[in-house]
Simulated assay, not measured.
Amino acid sequence: MSKHGFFQITQKLFLRDGNLLLVLRDQKSGHGDLPGGRMNEDEFFDEWTNSISREINEELGPNIKIDVNPVPIFVHKHRVNDGNHPCIIIAYDAKLIDGKVELSDEHDFMEWVDIKTFDPKKLFSEYMLDAVQLYLNQYA
């Protein structure tokens, strides 16, 4: 008899400034990443946008202002690099309003890439590559 699985939730933003998309690289794994991260246990029954706000503040700094559409654009499977846990990506569309990104030590690289010409295979891998490709296929 099969048993029910337990999965972590990670909320990721496709943060745009016009045709430009913010991509990051995870400092530990060297793999491509997007802004956002895993939801803490105490955030699950709260408004999920609070978890997104916390992650953005941690990863992109307190001086950036963004507008996140709270309706997810898609859901995708993922495996978290840290611990290899099965995870669900909930993807959101977001727009840069104002401010400058200040990277935390979680990421060692960032770039605003043109969604029409960006090749995600150079930076992303596995399930994150699938998710970014899915986004580009829909929105580029």
Results as ranks from 00 to 15, higher is better:
residue 11 Q to M: 12
residue 27 Q to H: 10
residue 89 I to M: 14
residue 9 I to N: 09
residue 41 E to D: 14
residue 41 E to K: 15
residue 15 L to F: 00
residue 6 F to K: 12
residue 57 N to V: 00
residue 138 Q to R: 13
residue 80 V to S: 15
residue 90 I to G: 07
residue 15 L to A: 03
residue 42 D to T: 15
residue 91 A to G: 09
residue 135 Y to L: 02
residue 71 V to I: 14
residue 10 T to H: 13
residue 116 K to Q: 11
residue 78 H to V: 00
residue 23 V to I: 08
residue 48 W to R: 15
residue 109 F to G: 11
residue 40 N to S: 11
residue 93 D to N: 11
residue 103 L to S: 03
residue 20 L to W: 10
residue 57 N to Q: 01
residue 100 K to H: 09
residue 108 D to L: 10
residue 93 D to A: 06
residue 110 M to E: 08
residue 48 W to L: 15
residue 123 L to Y: 08
residue 20 L to Y: 13
residue 129 L to M: 07
residue 42 D to L: 14
residue 118 F to R: 07
residue 47 E to Y: 14
residue 89 I to D: 13
residue 20 L to I: 03
residue 51 S to W: 07
residue 125 S to N: 10
residue 9 I to D: 01
residue 121 K to E: 11
residue 63 N to P: 10
residue 12 K to L: 15
residue 53 S to I: 03
residue 58 E to W: 11
residue 119 D to G: 08
residue 61 G to W: 01
residue 51 S to Y: 02
residue 40 N to I: 14
residue 85 H to L: 09
residue 69 N to S: 03
residue 67 D to P: 00
residue 36 G to S: 02
residue 21 L to V: 01
residue 124 F to Q: 03
residue 42 D to W: 14
residue 102 E to A: 12
residue 85 H to W: 06
residue 37 G to V: 06
residue 25 R to D: 06
residue 140 A to W: 03
residue 79 R to L: 05
residue 136 L to V: 00
residue 58 E to K: 15
residue 115 I to M: 12
residue 120 P to E: 09
residue 73 I to Q: 08
residue 59 E to R: 10
residue 49 T to L: 04
residue 128 M to T: 14
residue 30 G to Y: 05
residue 36 G to E: 09
residue 131 A to D: 08
residue 34 L to Q: 04
residue 33 D to Q: 08
residue 13 L to F: 02
residue 6 F to M: 10
residue 71 V to F: 11
residue 136 L to W: 07
residue 71 V to N: 13
residue 48 W to P: 15
residue 1 M to R: 10
residue 11 Q to W: 03
residue 66 I to L: 11
residue 91 A to R: 04
residue 51 S to Q: 01
residue 136 L to G: 01
residue 93 D to G: 01
residue 88 I to T: 10
residue 69 N to C: 05
residue 44 F to M: 13
residue 62 P to H: 07
residue 110 M to N: 06
